[in-house]
């Protein structure tokens, strides 16, 4: 099960473990696994310093299939456990793999806090808008009206938008991609890995058994050009088969709207330019949905701040310095025990 390192350049296949992959044939997870392994190869990530941590669900089987260190934990708690890993050893590169139920239902609290703390992790949320491993119940991201074994006449709940949740939680790196975007996905993953804090990547993933085609209206080849906008920092928010559609801010409604460049006197200068450090813009982009607006793909928000574990260990170093401790010097336990009032009994 352990592949011994060789000095040659690592290929994507070198990041595959010896375990047989057991997702359903045609599951979107295969494509994501491939993209992640390619990303690791592109980064030449040292396997011994890379850790995949997951919760419970179909997506959570992910660590078994990667030849790095891996920890398949308990439902919803992967962000908390990964926080412990990073606190213990900030040198490790830690990826959290989770699903919509794992991250936004049972683990919603942990996701909120890991994001606001800005723990240096890559959090990949595979969103298929359904519970797969428990056989098809509606999930917190299922749209209202989803028929499932637990909602035979349709769900009545409003879904949560994962990227909007992340931004609301204080995440400072938020991106979105799709399992089938094999060209774009590794680039997004590399950006996420480069960000030194909690990077949140929602990956829309097709569940072929319980929710097949749920994203088809904006991911199918025929529709995607007009129904997705790929956001790039510093470039105008233009999309469409003919690259003639753009996003403009309507100052009266304070909402984004789609305009066709060149039509009705609309010039390209009216189209918004993506600024990934702009939180307000990110919030609007993350919330966009068809049919009136395209779905935003790519790095929606990226506004770096020091990571949690960096600050924690910086404080520790400062306290050590104040106590006059040199590098590697351990404070005296006997002195600790004898601090404060003591008295001697003869």
């Amino acid at each position: 099960m352990t592949v011994v390192d060789t000095p040659e350049k690592l290929q994507a296949k070198d990041y595959a473990s010896d375990q047989e992959v057991r997702w359903c044939p045609g599951c979107g997870d295969y494509a994501i696994l491939k993209a992640v392994q390619r990303t690791l190869a592109d980064l030449q990530a040292p396997r011994e310093k890379t850790v995949f941590v997951s919760g419970i669900g179909c997506a959570a089987r992910f660590p078994y299939y990667v030849s790095t260190y891996g920890f398949h934990t308990i439902h919803g708690r992967a962000p908390a456990l990964a926080t412990g890993v990073k606190l213990a050893n900030p040198e490790l590169d830690v990826w959290v793999v989770t699903g919509d139920g794992d991250a936004l239902s049972i683990g919603g609290n942990h996701l909120l806090h890991v994001l606001r703390r800005n723990v240096n992790l890559q959090i990949l949320l595979f969103n298929n808008e359904i519970y797969g491993l428990t056989k098809g119940q509606y999930s917190p991201t299922s749209h209202a009206g989803t028929r499932s074994p637990s909602t035979p006449t349709g769900s009545v709940e409003a879904p949560v938008n994962a990227c909007a949740f992340a931004l609301g939680s204080g995440a400072r790196f938020v991106a979105r991609s799709v399992d089938t975007l094999q060209k774009q996905l590794p680039d997004v993953l590399k950006r996420a890995q480069a960000y030194e804090g909690a990077s949140f990547v929602e990956i829309l993933q097709n569940c072929i058994v319980y929710n097949d085609g749920v994203f088809g209206h904006f991911t199918d080849k025929a529709t995607q050009a007009d129904a997705q906008v790929h956001v790039v920092h510093g470039e105008p928010l233009i999309f469409g088969k003919n690259r003639d559609k753009g996003l403009r801010l309507n100052p009266k409604t304070i909402e984004l709207e789609v305009v066709t460049v060149g039509e009705g006197g609309v010039g390209e200068d009216e189209v918004l330019v993506h600024d990934e450090t702009n939180l307000r813009l990110a919030q609007m982009l993350a919330a966009m949905e068809p049919p009136h607006l395209p779905v935003a793909m790519g790095v929606i928000y990226n506004d770096p701040a020091p990571s949690y574990e960096t600050l924690v260990h910086q404080q520790r170093r400062e306290v050590r310095e104040k106590n006059g401790l040199k590098d590697g010097q351990l404070p005296d336990i006997n002195e600790l025990l004898r601090g404060g009032y003591t008295w001697t009994v003869e």
Partner: peptide, 21 residues
């Protein structure tokens, strides 16, 4: 290193993550 977690479960999970590391 001390960590005030968001809840009891997170505290225990983080402790396990630290032991793992």
């Amino acid at each position: 290193t001390t960590f005030q977690a968001e809840d009891e479960i997170a505290a225990c999970a983080a402790a396990i993550g630290a032991s793992y590391a």
